[in-house]
Design a protein around this nucleic acid. Structure first.
Length: 460
RNA sequence: GUGGAUGUAGCUCAGUUGGUUAGAGCGCUGGUUUGUGGUACCAGAGGUCGUGGGUUCGAGACCCAUCUUCCACCCCA
């Protein structure tokens, strides 16, 4: 019985055109990664549970795809565990590996495991798929590609500056104008929590504050109250909602508010440094914005935090993010390794470029020259030319069947093939080929050398 | 994981309070045109109405379940 084919929720096939477009983005990103001195690594698509679980918070653990053990795994589960019907407890017993949730934690694992082979500071990039058991939406998939660049083993703030330049370079080369690089510093957030006397509620505090854009000041205050943050604390926070002006001005206002917090002031200093550098080396197309409500969920960030949002005319969440994590490798036993990195969301960048029609037309062009097939004798004559042109580096094809001319021309048209070569009896006798430009409709009788010369600079 | 929409031809969508053989545009195939494509005209093919149950004399339409996609929450690239 034939079964209806289908895909798991949140996964996709990619057509030749889509692959070409994805490769175009990947090519731009990886070019700039290596241009900035990052080296590529790859890690497995699944890891041991012990590596992944507990690194992304409670919410994160829920979104990790667990892989069922092989064999008769249930026989190893105790009856009482099985009968408890507690999914979590049983899960521990029947799975020991999971699909990776991001590239940062596997990278931390990689660094610790290979610490003796690595010369620090280590700049690595990694472009691979990650998996999340999330409910899909537009721009949100269960299998998607992240493009990460991180440097580990240095606390220098120059790196933060470089990552901002990297973002700018990539988006400029993709011709995507108007992206905003939002920046904040976890230390500022810690400072705020300290100043309002809610240090132990830091996470709840930042998560609520992060929603300011979405639910407004009243919504944020309401959520903070619900999470047990005191009314007094919220009153003290009031100035934060009134910050205005440019980067520098906001920093000034902030430093007054945080004057009693050592850590807060340190965060401000770091932001100041970055801001001054970028002022002296202006960005090409991206805009750097201070956004003190920016928190990002991942709790391993300790210093600066980045989030890149698409141009405002496109309705899309963030297309990139990152930050500094002072002790990511600590959980795997390697202390004092500060890291900072950013991620590009390939799938979302794709959707943004598609919506703004920013893919160059030439990237979907595959075959450059198509030979029309007139029959057996002519095909042989054509095929000799085909292999010579292929050796010269052109992408050439002979239509496989001696189909009607209209059908073959149509094929060339639909496949966006810019040149067609006709060689029938008349051409064979004269030892020439008729080269036709599909766009201009011009055609000329030429020999092979003339054709390759003519096309050489067209496809240079 | 919670709540809400959605699904009819390859694509975008019509389809009346439930009533014979489910339509259009685009696309596709063939022809007008036997070595010249995009335009025009003519003809044709293509649908288990997401899937499975149920109500009914009768279901594309009503009810239940399930899946997909989308939206909000959560979270995030």
């Amino acid at each position: 019985m034939a079964q209806k084919p289908g895909l798991p929720k949140g996964t996709r096939d990619f057509s030749p055109e889509e692959v070409a477009k994805r490769n175009y983005i990947i090519q731009q990103i990886s070019h700039h990664f290596s241009n900035f001195g990052f080296q590529p690594i790859e890690t497995p698509s699944f890891e041991n549970n012990s590596t992944l679980l507990g690194k992304y918070g409670e919410e994160g653990d829920r979104l990790i795809f667990k892989i069922l053990n092989s064999g008769d795994f249930l026989s190893k589960v105790k009856d009482e565990t099985y009968q408890s019907k507690n999914s979590n407890t049983i899960a521990h017993k029947i799975t020991e590996k999971s699909l990776r949730y991001d590239l940062t934690v596997p990278f931390a694992r990689y660094v610790v495991q290979h610490q003796n082979e690595i010369d620090f500071p280590f700049k690595r990039y990694q472009i691979q798929n990650v998996y999340r058991a999330d409910r899909p939406q537009k721009g949100r998939f269960r299998e998607f590609t992240q493009c990460d660049a991180d440097v580990i083993g240095s606390k220098s703030l120059w790196q933060e500056v470089e990552f901002i330049q990297l973002y700018d370079a990539v988006f400029s080369s993709l011709n995507l104008k108007g992206v905003e690089i939002n920046i904040n510093n976890r230390k500022v957030l810690s400072g705020l929590a300290e100043v309002i006397g809610e240090t132990d509620k830091l996470i709840d505090f930042t998560v609520a504050l992060d929603k300011l854009d979405k639910i407004g000041r009243a919504g944020v205050e309401k959520e903070m109250l619900e999470k047990g943050i005191s009314q007094e604390a919220i009153v003290k926070l009031a100035p934060v909602f009134q910050f205005s002006g440019d980067f520098e001005h906001q920093l000034q206002e902030l430093s007054q508010l945080l004057s009693d917090s050592a850590i807060g002031l340190q965060g401000i200093e770091e932001l100041q440094f970055i801001s001054k550098c970028i002022q002296k080396m202006p960005l090409a197309t991206a805009k750097l914005k201070l956004n003190i409500t920016l928190a990002r969920g991942l709790n391993y960030y300790t210093g600066c935090i980045f989030e890149v949002s698409a141009p405002s005319e496109v309705k899309m969440g963030s297309i990139g993010g990152g930050g500094r994590y002072d002790d990511l490798t600590g959980i795997f036993g390697l202390k004092d390794m500060s890291g900072v990195g950013v991620s590009f969301g390939l799938d979302r960048i794709y959707l943004v470029l598609e919506e703004l029609d920013l893919f160059p037309k030439t990237i979907t062009e595959g075959t450059q020259i198509l030979f029309i097939n007139f029959g057996e004798k002519e095909a042989l004559y054509a095929l000799k030319a085909v292999s010579q042109l292929r050796k010269k580096g052109f992408s050439v094809d002979l239509y496989p069947d001696a189909a009607k001319m209209k059908k073959q021309m149509n094929f060339a048209n639909k496949r966006n093939i810019p040149y067609v070569i006709l060689a029938g009896e008349a051409e064979i006798q004269k030892e020439v080929f008729t080269l036709k430009n599909m766009k201009s409709r011009e055609q000329f009788e030429l020999n092979l050398a003339q054709i390759s010369q003519r096309l050489q600079d067209k496809f240079a």
